[in-house]
Design a protein around this nucleic acid. Structure first.
Lengths: 361, 361
DNA sequence: CTTCATCGGGTAAGCGGTTGCACAACCGGC
DNA sequence: GCCGGTTGTGCAACCGCTTACCCGATGAAG
């Protein structure tokens, strides 16, 4: 029906701006200007050009456009994995905001491997993405800070803005934006929630010294205990990574070593909670009847297991990262170098108040 | 320490191939050839160039490279949403394979809106992605086929290969690849699983006439019933979309209308199963003690709720799509225009054999 | 009826690579 | 000692688009 379907068949070279110009009887410059919109032009010329574009089914070549100096049209996001709900939701936010701003979104995964992270950053550098968003949990050591600083500078030189999402900030002279969320505050709030329900022996699952996310969550946990004058027992902090299977393992090992010496569990995230819950069940312990439990993240598994947890604004994290990075206003830029998003408790049905009798146990 | 950190600081124009050539004392052509690797070169020259590259921290400009005729370096995937586990896993597969082939992956989301799908395809066309992978459930009507045919031809003209992933095929003369998985076979198998356990009244949740995925699943369901000589009761097929909340709604409505007239539930996917399970529980019905249940997809919620389900090779779907599309061999190309991946049952703990007494109910 | 902004549009110089073609240097064989 | 064949580089023409600069036409002002 359209010229395109009939004439522009497969195998044929796609139309260039020259073709459009010829077809419309104007010069390429005119076509370029009319398409980019930012230029006065006679309505007649304009409609001629638009008609030619339609008839030839012309789309601009992004490579050429990018080369010729127009600003890039893409934002990049680098995550550990796309299937992990945490990253997926941040990615969704990035995607959404990018689409809103008319940019497209390129995704790289690292599997947590710094080697691949480096390779991916290089790839993004080649691509001249407008910004590169690095998200997730890391070890905040000197090596990390040095690596990020290098990334930031190299990207800045290529015209891209580095954004650290849920990662610790670097020095003030490093050209990087930071968008974080309040891990410590959330952990504090939900630990207080357990404490108010009368729990005193709260098992923390997923300690991992050196890693920023579990570190700041456990900090909130400890602070809440301290503020409620509950003695801190390091034996209640169990080491493990942020996976479902780890939650299962940690509870299992604990229960095989002896009967539960805790009345509540604070899982480092919802995945751990799901695994822990399964292990508890296999030992005949029900949540919340026998053991109370809370998680962190408020991601899909949480609703399925009726878990009281801390809501993390994952999508907003992604959206904010993009919004900030594309911020053209240099005044605002300087102000918003570092953003901290809030978190809050979502109450479901996984916590029971402890009867005074149990409390003394 | 490195030249880069010291000299190539922020704000400075990134090094071009010309800079490298000058720094190494050779011509740009030589640098280009050495970097692309596909050319003989003297070891001495080679190391000079590599050193210059390192010292200047040079990375090629992808736009320029793309413009100058070198084949594109990216594959594109277009999905409804990144957070839906189904799409996320396919995307993961695409990502993995793309990384393996040294390409990067650009992602677009449509939210299920054909308008945005079109816009996204145009964007990918501009980008000259090597292939564009469209994934997911759709209405297989004339409008759909016509739209896809247009996409396929337009993309082919721009040098991209269209891949339909989990979507129905088009005519044989349309330049599109198809990678599907066996919905009907899986549904047949898992329905048979329920039938073998003695269930006769199996509620199907998530019928949605016209949509390819639920359609082919319900086809397998019906076929299994027929083969087992179980009368088909259309009243057992409940309309609904593929979301968790819908599963909840469907069961809830059913149970509010009267006591259960079924002994098992076949949820159109795992999300529906999760929602349905919750609704059952709220009505005092336990899975599998009171009601047996199976799902489809074998995605995260399934393990959490111990769901017997059909495993869909999501990641492999994505990997295969990329592998096929990048297949350079035209002989194989022709052969593999249409691929069907197998599915199989994963048995967990959500089905109980029906006692003969109940069977007659 | 000039004069001069103003507006709309054309010309052409890049952007940073790739690659066909030409060519110098060096090899062994006659 | 001359010749044909490698090998390794350089030269320069694009790829498709943007944009600085320039110029012809048009209408208002003097």
């Amino acid at each position: 029906m359209s010229q395109r379907a009939a004439g522009g068949g497969e195998g044929r070279r796609p139309a260039t701006i020259r073709d459009v110009a010829a077809h419309a009887g104007v010069s390429v410059a005119t076509v370029s200007r009319i398409l980019s919109g930012t230029y006065p032009s006679a309505p007649a010329t304009r409609s001629k050009v638009m008609r030619a574009v339609r008839e030839l089914d012309y789309v601009a070549n992004a490579n050429a456009r990018g080369l010729a100096g127009a600003s890039s049209r893409s934002v990049a996001i680098i995550v550990n994995s796309v299937v992990s709900p945490h990253y997926a939701h941040v990615a969704q936010g990035v995607q959404t905001q990018a689409a809103l701003e008319g940019k497209l979104c390129i995704v790289g995964t690292t599997g947590g491997d710094p080697e691949r992270e480096l390779a991916t950053v290089q790839l993004m550098r080649q691509e001249h993405a407008e910004c590169v968003i690095l998200v997730g949990n890391v070890v905040n050591d000197e090596a990390y800070r040095q690596r990020m600083t290098e990334y930031a500078r190299a990207l800045a030189a290529a015209g891209s803005q580095l954004v650290l999402c849920g990662r610790p900030a670097l020095g003030p002279d490093v050209p990087a934006l930071v968008v974080e969320y309040d891990n410590t505050g959330g952990a504090y709030a939900i630990t207080s929630h357990l404490l108010s329900a009368g729990h005193r022996r709260i098992l923390f699952l997923g300690r991992r010294d050196g890693y920023t996310t579990p570190d700041s969550r456990i900090t909130g946990y400890r602070r809440a205990l301290a503020d409620h004058r509950v003695p801190h027992d390091p034996g209640l902090e169990i080491d493990g990574t942020m996976e479902r299977s780890e939650g299962y393992r940690m509870i299992r090992q604990r229960l095989e070593a002896g009967p539960p010496d805790f009345t509540a569990v604070f899982a480092g995230n919802d995945l751990i909670a799901a695994g822990a819950r399964q292990a508890l069940r296999e030992h005949g312990l029900r949540v919340p009847d026998d053991i109370s439990m809370v998680g962190f993240d408020d991601l899909p598994p949480a609703a399925d297991i009726d878990l009281t947890t801390v809501h993390v604004p994952h999508e907003e994290l992604g959206r904010t990262a993009v919004r900030l990075a594309l911020q053209r206003d240099p005044g605002k830029m300087a102000m918003a170098q570092h953003v901290l998003l809030g978190t809050h408790i979502i109450v479901r049905d996984s916590v029971r108040p402890l009867r005074p009798a149990d409390a003394t146990t």
